[in-house]
Amino acid sequence: MAKKNIISKLFASGPLFLLYYLSISEVDTNLEKLIEVFSLNLQIIIIYFWIIKRPSLMGTGHIFFAGLINDVVMGFPLGISSLSYLLICFVGNYVRNKSVNTTIASDWFTFFIALLFANLLFFSLLNNFSEVAISYTKIGYNTFFTLFLFPVFWLLFNLYQKSFIGSQDA
């Protein structure tokens, strides 16, 4: 029984582990070597999905900390990724409070709003308060691919949730 409990806890901490791992490791979801324009912000998808589906698995403190780590590794001003992630978290919380049952289509639409707010905040802060210049084309591609691939990851995470964590929604 205790062993089963540990295993279920391990599976439950999978999304958080993935979030931390993507923030701290060299692993990136940026396939520039294959397709020059392809880049994806998987962290945002992870946060949004799990905040909507199982907020108990994605603590806000962890999200904040993962953002700080991401800033250090990427070389951005400290706190900027945290802000962007927390904004995603806020929209996710709001959508969860307002909706009784969510579908892939409704999640996709609300994710678009969350992504728009988060990227707007991220790049306007970077543009106005930092010396780091960023290509708007790259931002566009990144936003597009993140939005475009959201349903794919939604299905994958949903499958993971149903198989290993349990289908109980928040």
């Binding site: 603590g59 400290l78 945290s82 927390l86 919380n93």
Partner: peptide, 28 residues
């Protein structure tokens, strides 16, 4: 509720962390 809610794994409210992140950002 989305800004201030706490409980379970959400030990800190989103609003307090947004303020903290903003402070860190401007200090940096």
């Amino acid at each position: 509720s989305a800004l201030l809610q706490r409980g379970g794994a959400q030990k800190f409210s989103v609003l307090s962390l947004i303020f903290l992140a903003l402070i860190i950002f401007f200090l940096d």
